[in-house]
Write a protein that binds this DNA or RNA. Structure first.
Length: 457
RNA sequence: GGCCCGAUGGCAGAGUGGUGAUGCAGCGGCCUGCAAAGCCGUUAACAGCGGUUCGAUUCCGCUUCGGGCCUCCA
């Protein structure tokens, strides 16, 4: 059995991954809150944990991957009012866009994709358990979790309750017994979405959904819980508190994985700063696969500098890999070294370097390395298309670059034949004119020993 | 204010107590009618100052700079 080393936020160190059940590895990743297009920062966990799931599936016979959708949230309510549409119109539209983006980035579908609004009863049940076990209390219409009642509160984020209080920059609501207490259930006015509950018509707090849904689909204890660095506190800390107290358990998940931020000019990319690029927008000019490649260029815990330039480089790198695997279909033989590289805490840069080594060998004539390259790239979710598809198609919506390049394949082929004849007649000026003409339409010609191929770029 | 992380060549980004990461860019050559692609070769880095060591980019300390969390966030 291959050893997978993973950094666990809970222990602040790397350790060998040991599943609870070798025959069913269970992983939960926090998915999007659906009120807007996802941006490149949201896409990072999507891609890196997709790679993790692919890797786990190589090592273990079965992996259950759950990624939720948060479709009840105050940001959603606010946005729906701003856009003068209903909440379900907003969430349905956003989910549709999210699925399209996730697919274009080459992600596998999770085994379960539960929505918060479909699990209100599970949340209410869990909150009731927390109240009856003395971990939660009712105050001014709200149900709150009493952090003091959970002895391990702060273990994940590495902070004590005292530190949190002394460092607090937030006004403390007067209905809280302890400043750190957080909401499990809150009342809804008539114009806001709400469900009947023992505490009146209301809606869940932010964290309870993940506790309820992970329990339903993965059990009260599972292997891996993943998400972005910014979810460590308070989201994951609170999830652990709720789940452990409701399930009378010491652990919620054994391994807590957190990806680093995507940065722009050295700063964290975030919605509040407004310095983000949506995937939807980037796809106007770049391929989804190139975005995916760019997201794997840094190890997942390190910050990742993102720029248009990094996407250009990713595109070039992918072109190189695609050239080296022209005409090959995926089969079984994967590269062991690449798997080892990934098993080193998902060291994707090391894995990509290995791909380029294989491409080198392939270009020097190694059929074996070319085949390994094709097969192994799939672990990273890249090189899944044919070389022809990569060079000839772009999954773009609308794009100046493409519109300018409007030329049919038939026209290109005809021009290639004309150029061939010109070359045979030593009319090189004419031949070069054809090449220039195509270049203006973003078509690059490559003369091979026996034929001429074209690439769109 | 409390806590935490980082600093590698032009850019991105691995790694290591004593040889070349890798990609993109650059330079020289081969190939080509010329290109493109490919191949061969090549330039170039470990923030600063101390310490440990035969030897430190790598370990330790300090300084400077940058970033993050403590509030919605991936």
């Amino acid at each position: 059995m291959i050893k997978l080393n993973l950094y666990n936020t809970l222990q602040r160190r790397i350790s060998i991954f040991q599943p609870i059940d070798q025959n069913n590895v269970r992983i939960y990743a926090c998915g999007p809150t659906v009120y807007d297009f996802i941006h490149i920062g949201n896409a990072r966990p999507l891609v890196v944990f997709d790679v993790l799931v692919r890797l786990l599936r190589i090592i273990y016979p079965k992996v259950t991957y759950v990624r939720n959708i948060t479709d009840i949230d105050d940001k959603i309510n606010k946005r729906a009012i701003e856009k003068k549409i209903t909440i379900s119109e907003l969430t349905n539209e956003t989910i549709k866009n999210f699925h399209k983006d996730a697919l274009t980035l080459g992600n596998l579908k999770p085994d379960f994709e539960p929505k918060a609004t479909d699990h209100i009863s599970e949340m209410i049940e869990m909150i009731q358990t927390l109240i009856s076990n003395g971990f939660a209390y009712f105050s001014s219409g709200n149900v709150l979790f009493a952090v003091e009642k959970y002895k391990n509160y702060g273990a994940l984020s590495g902070r004590s309750l005292d530190e949190m209080i002394s460092g607090s920059r937030v006004e403390v609501a007067d209905y809280k017994e302890n400043p750190g207490d957080f909401i499990l259930w809150k009342p809804s006015s008539e114009n806001l979405p709400g469900w009947d509950s023992p505490w009146g018509r209301g809606r869940p707090g932010w964290h309870i959904e993940c506790s309820a849904m992970s329990k339903k689909y993965l059990g009260s204890q599972f292997d891996i819980h993943a998400g972005g660095l910014d979810l460590i506190f308070p989201h994951h800390e609170n999830e652990i508190a709720q789940s452990c107290c409701a399930n009378n358990s010491d652990i919620m998940a054994n391994y807590w994985l957190h990806n680093g931020y995507v940065t722009s000019d050295g700063e964290k990319m975030s919605k509040s700063l407004g310095n983000f690029a949506t995937i939807n927008n980037l796809l106007l000019n770049f391929r989804g696969e190139a975005i995916r490649y760019a997201l794997m260029q840094a190890q997942y815990r390190a910050p990742l500098s993102f720029s248009k330039k990094s996407l250009d480089e990713a595109t070039k790198s992918l072109s190189r890999l695609y050239r080296a695997t022209e005409g090959l279909e995926v089969n079984d033989g994967q590269d062991t070294q690449l798997i080892y590289n990934l098993c080193d805490d998902l060291n994707s840069p090391k894995a990509l370097a290995r791909l380029h080594y294989l491409a080198d060998e392939a270009n020097k004539g190694s059929k074996e390395c070319a085949q390994k390259l094709k097969n192994s790239s799939n672990i990273l979710g890249i090189l899944c298309n044919s070389t022809d598809e990569w060079f000839k198609f772009r999954e773009v919506n609308s794009n100046d670059k493409t519109e300018n390049a409007t030329i049919t394949e038939k026209e290109i082929d005809e021009l290639i034949i004309k150029r061939k004849i010109a070359k045979e007649n030593k009319e090189f000026e004419k031949a070069d004119q054809i090449r220039e003409l195509l270049l203006e339409k973003n078509i690059q010609l490559e003369d091979k020993p026996d034929r001429t191929v074209w690439r769109r770029f």
